[in-house]
């Protein structure tokens, strides 16, 4: 009966059309479908929950209000993830500037000094949180384009072709960005990956 159930689910395109007409149920369903993946991509790019939530909210609003920009050349998912990752990178740039000033004033060197390590994830403890911080720090060594490409591939699990469609670049460029991103990450993480 799985096939029968699947047939009852409206497509993303249908939900988009209804959402753009003000249908709240359609918007809520679209939101449920993509909030998690959007949040994870944004979190990887921004490194903290609050900023990631802001970026996801902005991305949903932008996607609905600028639906005309979605021309159906790719799936809604790939298009939307581009909107999310762009929103996250923009937010990161804005927050980064402000944060540098405020952290300097507090005498802090890293934004992680401001965040609780264990409180957010009591079930998994320090290890997972600490590993993610290391990855976030490593990602910051990449260019925004490399970071965006890598996160879309690794976190959203988009194929090379989907990443290319999402970002409007060639598969060769995706391949190149991922390759150099991985080299850089390996270099940055070399000191601790051996101890994993």
């Amino acid at each position: 009966m799985t096939g029968g159930i699947a047939l009852l689910l409206p497509s993303d395109e249908k939900l988009l059309e209804l959402s753009a007409q003000g249908d709240r149920e359609a918007l809520a369903e679209l939101f449920r479908r993509y909030r998690q993946i959007a949040y994870r991509v944004a979190h990887r790019l921004l490194g903290n929950e609050a900023d990631a939530l802001d970026a996801v909210q902005e991305a949903f609003v932008k996607a609905i209000l600028h639906l005309a920009n979605f021309q159906g050349r790719s799936t809604f998912k790939t298009w939307f993830l581009r909107v999310v990752s762009n929103a996250a990178l923009d937010l990161g740039r804005k927050r980064g500037r402000r944060e540098t000033l405020s952290m300097d004033a507090l005498g802090l060197k890293n934004r992680q000094d401001l965040e609780p390590a264990v409180m957010q994830e009591p079930d998994r403890g320090l290890e997972r949180s600490d590993l993610r911080r290391k990855l976030t720090e490593a990602l910051e060594h990449l260019s925004p384009a490399q970071r965006q490409t890598f996160v879309l591939h690794a976190e959203a699990e988009l194929s090379y072709r989907e990443v290319a469609q999402s970002l409007g670049i060639s598969i060769g460029t995706v391949m190149s960005r991922l390759y150099y991103a991985r080299l850089k990450l390996r270099e940055v993480l070399a000191s601790w990956t051996r101890n994993l």
Binding site: S19, L27, F31, R35, A52, Q57, F60, V61, L65, R132
Partner: peptide, 21 residues
Amino acid sequence: SPLDPDPAQWSAMLARVEAET
């Protein structure tokens, strides 16, 4: 992979998205 936010945060976000859109 980042853990999901609290369900209440999703609800609040959806309400804001509805209002803005």
